[in-house]
């Protein structure tokens, strides 16, 4: 009996936190250190001294235009994805359709296929339709690539939603339009937010798509940074531009978190404090 109690107490003290230590080391070398290196290169001259010249070279009118264009492409892609994905998810999660799991799966399957192969397939199709490479083709390609990433989180949230809220709303006399805007839409906000984060920022790096479907006018910031490191070999300017992008990432993350928290709070209130 004594022995057992001893074992129990010992067992409760047992905390294998050291299991996480290798990963902490990995994080330091492969996540933190690279960011420090980006910072160092961004503020370093070719001879090793401190400089702000890289930022002067980055913050030119041409580059600001490039950044704005990238933001524009990302926004447009996100909005179109949302406009297609939301109704699709809504239908898939609604009554006769939510029985067919395979039907929903069909919409997600392309996500698992290599995206470069999918984009060259799209390229052939656009060729048949006589659509030239350029801005329009780029947007089509971006939407084609990112749609499943918008669809999946919204669909998941709508499927998990407690349908009795809708019944309650109808019972209380709201019509389907009011029910949608007052109940369904707010409850699916979390899915929308994670969908947006899975589309908006990744577009900045999706220069493979602009490379395959765009023209010289559709270069995005991700492609420009790649170019600075490979073709132009000006790492200082490339790092400075990466640094600017990094700040943008954290800014959008911060905004996303604000929405996420408010949503989590609202959800907790609705569920009577029983947060999962």
């Amino acid at each position: 009996m004594k022995l057992k109690n001893l074992a129990l107490r010992k067992g409760n003290d047992f905390r294998p936190t050291f299991f996480a230590f290798p990963y902490v080391a990995i994080c330091f070398i492969f996540v933190v250190l690279p960011l420090i290196l980006v910072l160092v290169y961004a503020f370093r001259d070719t001879d090793g001294s401190f400089t702000l010249n890289n930022f002067r070279d980055v913050l030119t009118a041409g580059n600001l235009k490039l950044l704005l264009k990238t933001v524009g492409i990302a926004l447009l892609t996100t909005v179109i994805c949302l406009l297609i994905a939301y109704p699709t998810a809504l239908i898939l999660a609604s009554k006769p359709f939510n029985k067919y799991v395979i039907l929903a799966l069909l919409f997600i399957i392309p996500m698992w296929m290599n995206f470069v192969l999918r984009i060259i397939a799209l390229r052939s199709l656009l060729g048949i339709f006589g659509i030239d490479y350029g801005f329009g083709a780029t947007i089509i390609g971006m939407v084609y690539d990112f749609l499943p990433f918008m669809l999946l989180p919204i669909y998941t949230v709508l499927m998990d939603m407690d349908k009795s809220y809708i019944e309650a709303s109808t019972d209380l006399g709201a019509n389907s339009v009011i029910t949608f805007f007052k109940v369904t839409l707010p409850l699916s906000l979390k899915g929308i937010v994670s969908g947006i984060t899975m589309v908006f920022m990744p577009v900045f790096s999706a220069y493979a798509i602009t490379g395959m479907l765009g023209d010289t006018d559709t270069t995005i910031i991700g492609g420009k940074i790649h170019e600075l490191f490979v073709n132009a070999d000006v790492w200082g300017i490339g790092s400075a531009m990466s640094f600017v992008l990094l700040i943008l990432v954290f800014a959008t993350m911060f905004i996303g978190n604000l929405f996420g928290k408010r949503e989590a709070g609202a959800k907790a209130a609705v569920k009577g404090g029983t947060n999962e």
């Binding site: 960011l35 990744p202 790096s205 790092s239 990094l246």
Partner: peptide
């Protein structure tokens, strides 16, 4: 660990190159 998930992939790629 979330930094790698939310970061722009091109910045991660540049970081790995510099590393």
């Amino acid at each position: 660990s979330q930094v790698t998930v939310v970061n722009a992939e091109i910045v991660t790629a540049v970081g790995f190159l510099l590393l």
